[in-house]
Amino acid sequence: MPVRRGHVAPQNTFLDTIIRKFEGQSRKFIIANARVENCAVIYCNDGFCELCGYSRAEVMQRPCTCDFLHGPRTQRRAAAQIAQALLGAEERKVEIAFYRKDGSCFLCLVDVVPVKNEDGAVIMFILNFEVVMEKDMVGSPAHDTNHRGPPTSWLAPGRAKTFRLKLPALLALTARESSVRSGGAGGAGAPGAVVVDVDLTPAAPSSESLALDEVTAMDNHVAGLGPAEERRALVGPGSPPRSAPGQLPSPRAHSLNPDASGSSCSLARTRSRESCASVRRASSADDIEAMRAGVLPPPPRHASTGAMHPLRSGLLNSTSDSDLVRYRTISKIPQITLNFVDLKGDPFLASPTSDREIIAPKIKERTHNVTEKVTQVLSLGADVLPEYKLQAPRIHRWTILHYSPFKAVWDWLILLLVIYTAVFTPYSAAFLLKETEEGPPATECGYACQPLAVVDLIVDIMFIVDILINFRTTYVNANEEVVSHPGRIAVHYFKGWFLIDMVAAIPFDLLI
């Protein structure tokens, strides 16, 4: 008679799926529990143990900040960024110097990925580790590398530091407007667009060049630039800015003055950032001319202004700041037409079709709590990747769950009947059967004279019903998954307890 339990259901295979997918890609990662103190490590794979030199037993239950890997060259700011990422709910990448158990130093890129439950609360953290440099290539500990984003994938490793954006290309926007319009339909740009040429040739750093990471940081200074100062900065030398009595002219307006920039070969870094931020506020060169004239017309309804409409929906549905990093990277690809469009465009503009998908598509409701890094690593669709929660398995109709209350009560009843059979069957065979043979035949009273025979008949009927119930009862397979398919249940029961239950259900007393 089957006594099969499996009270692990309803099970959740999400954690096993993450481990299996990460292991298949030869990654070095740990999984931490966000619900406990210090976000203790609950799993670390073999790749991480080989990377740091510690065994799994030495890593388990330690804080996922990996303070046991810190050393003299470990930056405090990087460690603080990892700790801050564990307090938030967004994906974050941090470069930090770690030390192995043998004392060797290596520069590592740590990717902190939160995993949320159905309520939107962070319950786990996945920390992925990628070695960037070994100890002989690690720089000085005073050099802070965590304020910069990861290198873009479309640049060669040897040319990542030679990417320079020439400031004269930004200063000569109005001069290039006529050349853009003359391109017409034969050019790649839309009317009114501004073409910015980027020099990728390796050259020595000069005062006129600005690194790509500095251009990325310009967006942080746009908020500090007032509207009046932006307007004066875009007017140009024809209309000098008016300053109040006793007030000095704005240095932001002076930063885009061609006369002032041409007199000296070098520009201050602050002026460069502010000038680029001011130019980015204009949607095209037409807006710059309109600002000089004193009238700013409404933005025209053409394809170039609607190019950012799908980007707005993608940004609203993005799951991490990696989408913004990807957008900034692609927006700086050289030799393309940049349409400086305000994100607050007309909502009635139709979304044009684009061959290049900048932001990841909208994630469906079932995966809105899973970050983009987890979705990318697992390579699963929205119909396959579940949320991290207890999910009731989908069972067929008329199927009994093996952990249901009805099955528990039924098993206790069958257990009592088995005990009765084990006690009274030998007793009936030894004593009652002998008395029946010696006594007179009682054929007239039937079952009324033999109450134990009636009980034995009921017990046999219950055993037959138990066999039928076992054909529709779920079970737990070797992978700790609840199986509810009727065919698989029948095959599993035939290979197991079916023969024993059938022999126990045969009414031998009635056959004798």
Rank of each mutant, 00 (worst) to 15 (best):
G262M: 14
T65N: 07
L86R: 01
V110N: 01
R159D: 11
S207K: 11
F68P: 01
F340G: 14
Q25T: 13
E208C: 01
D213M: 12
R100Y: 01
R76H: 15
A190C: 06
F106K: 01
G158F: 13
D199Y: 01
P114M: 01
H302F: 11
K93H: 07
Q61M: 09
A303C: 06
G381E: 08
T13W: 14
L165I: 06
P251K: 13
H143M: 13
T329R: 12
K135Q: 07
R20P: 01
F22S: 13
L338Q: 12
R62A: 09
N128P: 01
G103Q: 07
F48M: 01
V131G: 11
A89D: 13
S266N: 01
G103V: 01
E50G: 09
L316P: 08
T201E: 09
Q335D: 11
G149P: 09
T145R: 12
T375M: 04
G189V: 05
Y54W: 07
P151K: 15
Q376I: 01
K93D: 09
E91N: 11
P141C: 08
S313D: 14
V279F: 13
A85R: 01
D197W: 01
T375A: 06
P114G: 02
E289M: 14
L316R: 05
T65V: 13
I336K: 14
R35S: 15
K362Q: 07
L212Y: 06
P249F: 07
R73C: 08
M60D: 01
R27C: 14
V377T: 03
L127G: 01
A307K: 06
G314K: 09
N257C: 15
E95D: 14
R181E: 06
V295N: 07
L200T: 15
A260V: 12
A293K: 15
I96C: 06
A203K: 13
L385Y: 07
T353D: 13
R4H: 15
L155S: 06
P300H: 15
R164F: 09
K101W: 01
A169Y: 12
G314W: 05
I336M: 12
S351G: 08
G186L: 07
V215I: 13
S255K: 15
S207I: 15
K166E: 09
R56A: 07
A282R: 11
S209W: 13
D213G: 06
V196C: 05
A40C: 11
F106Y: 03
T201H: 14
K93N: 13
D259M: 04
A290C: 13
V374F: 11
A185G: 14
R73W: 06
S264C: 11
V36K: 15
D287I: 07
E372W: 07
I31C: 04
V122L: 12
A285V: 11
C44E: 01
T337C: 12
D286A: 07
S179P: 08
S239H: 06
I82S: 01
P237R: 08
G6W: 08
S264D: 04
G120R: 14
K21R: 07
D287V: 09
V370K: 10
E118D: 11
I30K: 01
C265D: 15
N146P: 06
A175L: 01
R77Q: 15
S26R: 13
A282C: 08
E91P: 11
N128I: 09
V132D: 15
V325T: 14
P2C: 01
Q335I: 01
A172V: 01
E372M: 11
A244W: 12
P300T: 06
E274V: 11
P258W: 05
Y43P: 01
P151Q: 13
R27G: 13
V370R: 09
T337M: 14
S266I: 07
I30L: 11
D346W: 05
I123P: 13
R73Q: 13
A169V: 01
I123E: 09
V374K: 03
I42H: 01
L225G: 12
F125D: 01
D16T: 06
V295S: 12
V132Q: 15
A211N: 15
R242Y: 15
I330N: 14
S322E: 13
H147F: 04
V370E: 03
G262E: 07
C276D: 14
S26N: 10
P241R: 11
R281V: 11
P258G: 14
S178Q: 11
L170C: 15
Q61W: 08
D119M: 15
C66Q: 01
A285G: 07
R35L: 06
R100I: 01
R280F: 15
E37A: 14
E130C: 04
L86C: 14
